[in-house]
Amino acid sequence: MHEMAISESILGILEDEARRQSYRRVKKVWLEIGPFAGIETEALRFTFDVVTKGTLADSAALEIVATDARAWCLPCERSVEIAQRFDCCPICGGHQLQMTSGDEMRIKELEVE
């Protein structure tokens, strides 16, 4: 259930940015979430709604952009796409993979007024 803590962090960023960029309402939030970010998107949507009640992001829509997970295979010396952390290399079948992307957890942009 750390989606609650994540939602609180998102709201904190929205409120900080409201001061910096002077807006008073957030209508839509675009998040970039990697498959290995450890975020259950349904739980995030639920807790985001709960956490933002009565705040500047009340009823804001969450747009979640899923990113790809990629890893560098040491034996093949190339970048490959993986679906899970323990996947083997789709080319050589080895496990000497260095994950290069997939744990992103970022706020990309906001629609505000």
Partner: peptide, 10 residues
């Protein structure tokens, strides 16, 4: 309404 790019790590 306007768009704001923030690119912030959660």
């Amino acid at each position: 309404a306007r768009m704001v790019q923030i690119e912030q790590d959660i």
